[in-house]
Design a protein around this nucleic acid. Structure first.
Ligand SMILES: [Zn+2]
Ligand SMILES: [Zn+2]
Ligand SMILES: [Zn+2]
Ligand SMILES: [Zn+2]
Lengths: 135, 135
DNA sequence: TAAAACTATAAAGCTACTATAAGGTCAATA
DNA sequence: TATTGACCTTATAGTAGCTTTATAGTTTTA
C-alpha cells in the first residue's frame, strides 16, 4: 500500500502520515526502489489508533506514552488507566474554566443593548473598567 | 515609564509587551536617546484592556477589531455586541464538545480496572477497537 | 570599577498539523 | 514519442500567542 491509499483508508492527509513518522509515532515503512513508502496493515492499525487517540483529545506525547506501554504487554495497565484519569481531569478543568468564562461573557453582554454608540457601549465599558473576577 | 515598570504594573512580561507592539495591538511608544521605550498612562490602559480581553478568551484578531471600533466612537455599537455574541457561541460550542468528550472518556475508563496486564487493558482495547461515536 | 539589573533586536521553540515549492516517477493518452 | 495528469519525494514556512534563548548595549548599584 502506498501513502495515498493509506491516507484515504484512514481519512487523513498524506502529510499527516509523514508528520507522524517524523515524530516517531508511526514506524518508518519500507521503501520501493524509487523511494516511495510502502505500508502494511499494521501501519494502518497504528495510524487508526493514533487518530482515535487524537479524537479523544490526547496529545501526541500522551499517545507516545501509550505506545510505549503497548510495547510491554505484560506490565500492569495501571499507568494506562492513570494517563486516562489525568486526561479526564484536564478535560474537566477545561470545562469548568469555560463555564466560568461563559458566565462572565454573558453578564458582560447583558450590560449593553444594540442602540448605543460605541462611546457608550456597555460591553466595552465593562472590559475597560476591569471589574473582572480573575481566575 | 520604561518597559519593565509597565510590565510589572500590568502583570505581564516585557517580551509580551514588545510582542503586542509588533502585532499592532499596542501603539509604538516614544524612545529615549538610547533606544529605550517610554510609556505613558495611555499605554498602560491599552495594555490592561488587551489583557482583560485575553482573559475573556478573545483572540488578538478580535481585540484588534474591538480597537478599531473604539477609534470610531460615534458609530453604533452593534458590531461590538455582535462580536461578543459570536465569541459566546464559540465558547458554548467548545463546552458542548468537551462535555461529549468527557462522556466518552469516562465510559472508556469504566471499561478497565487497575488489576490487568496491558495486553488485557480495557482502555487500550476500547481505543483499538474503535467503537467510537465520532462527532 | 565591576558586577547586577535592565534594555535592545533577532531568532527559535512550543502544538499538531497544513500549505507551498520544487522536483522525481509512472501510466495512459494524443 | 511527447506530454499530460496523478502520484510520490524532501524541505520550508505558516498557523496562535506567546516564551525562551542568544547576543549585545546601557544603566544602576555596591
Ligand atoms: Zn491530556
Ligand atoms: Zn454595546
Ligand atoms: Zn472568539
Ligand atoms: Zn487498563
Amino acid at each position: 500500500m502506498r501513502i495515498g491509499q493509506l491516507a484515504q483508508l484512514v481519512g487523513v492527509e498524506t502529510q499527516t502520515i509523514r508528520f507522524y513518522e517524523q515524530q516517531g509515532l508511526l514506524p518508518p515503512p519500507d521503501r520501493q526502489d524509487n523511494g516511495y513508502r510502502v505500508y502494511t496493515e499494521k501501519h494502518g492499525e497504528g495510524l487508526a489508533f493514533i487518530r482515535r487517540c487524537r479524537i479523544l483529545g490526547l496529545s501526541l506525547a500522551e499517545i507516545h506514552e501509550l505506545q510505549s506501554y503497548q510495547d510491554d504487554p505484560h506490565q500492569p495497565c495501571t499507568a494506562v488507566n492513570a494517563l486516562l484519569d489525568d486526561h479526564i481531569s484536564h478535560v474537566r478543568s477545561q470545562i469548568t474554566a469555560l463555564q466560568a468564562l461563559e458566565k462572565q461573557l454573558v453578564s458582560l453582554r447583558a450590560s449593553c443593548n444594540d442602540n448605543r454608540e460605541v462611546e457608550a457601549c456597555g460591553v466595552l465599558a465593562g472590559i475597560s473598567e476591569g471589574n473582572m473576577h480573575q481566575q
